[in-house]
Design a protein around this nucleic acid. Structure first.
Lengths: 160, 160
DNA sequence: CGTATCGCTGAACATGTTGTCCAGTGGATA
DNA sequence: TATCCACTGGACAACATGTTCAGCGATACG
């Protein structure tokens, strides 16, 4: 488990310019095409690269409001609550966290008013005891992976 | 701002099988290749599709621990704290939220012990008053967009 | 009512990339 | 020394891409 310097350069290059192909990558990295292809195959079967799905902006879809909700769950209701939240399209992400029966979920909504509807739908379920919501105002660091990849590629302790 | 049914089908298809090309998409959707190409171009210039970067799994890079930290910021120190956090590779994401001087950030670490090092580095900065950390145990709903896209494509109120 | 605009179709073309082979080379390992 | 492995550099057919074109139906506008 881990990546080397070439893997790191491949991932970073791919993250910065996703549309370039294997051939162009091999030219820029100064290695043979087959090498890049083999590395990419390995990174994908390793699970390091999960896929190349489109990154969709919820705001551009008409959901400009993002919020994080901390949910307190009644003992033993975890599975039911998970299933319930999975049915709500506005729940983009759900984590169970430390703290007895706590979950953290990322929500989007069409407006602050619409957020109320979403939260009502989220918490309108028996197993949820309490919910605390924080509305996102700014996103100074959007979800990123490049710095971590660069660190993982440099750090000998992580080599496979 | 918004998408129609064809846009929705394009995005969902792309999310499920990212490797297929424009030609294959046009075959499956039963429309002309030029139509798919034009839609994709529009979705990208609209900002609905931000890109096709690789989805990297931090766990496979050697960072299996994820945590969310709520930070309380001293008044007026927001910009400095943002700049500080941006330099920490283990900070994958940062949001400012409602609540005076509050931020929420997503962290990863190599182990629970390593998380202590990361948190020390994160909060070892003057502007941060207090930090509360929740370690992620499970991720029942990984970051997803398909249900929202399907809803946005069906909802006439969101049509552009 | 006629006309312009728009998006979609179906086709064509040259160009580039992909998937897949192969033999050869060098380093590391047993 | 012999074996394994990754990388190189090349080849080939098959395919997808970018681009352009004329035609067509629906919608909006004078």
């Amino acid at each position: 488990m881990g990546i080397d310097a070439l893997d790191g350069r491949i991932i970073v290059l791919l993250a910065r310019e996703p549309r370039i192909g294997v051939l162009e990558m091999s030219r820029r990295l100064g290695v043979a095409r087959g090498t890049v292809q083999a590395r990419l195959d390995r990174l994908q079967s390793n699970g390091v690269i999960r896929g190349f799905g489109p990154q969709v902006d919820p705001a551009a879809l008409g959901y400009p409001v993002t919020a994080f909700a901390t949910l307190q769950i009644r003992q033993g209701q975890g599975a039911d609550v998970r299933a319930h939240l999975a049915t709500v399209p506005e729940v983009l992400e759900l984590h169970t966290t430390t703290g007895s029966g706590d979950m953290l979920c990322r929500l989007v909504a069409r407006s602050n008013a619409d957020l109320q509807r979403v939260i009502d739908r989220v918490v309108g379920f028996d197993g949820i005891v309490r919910a605390a919501t924080a509305i996102v105002m700014e996103n100074p660091v959007p979800l990123r992976i490049i710095p971590l990849v660069e660190q993982a590629a440099e750090d000998p302790a992580l080599r496979e």
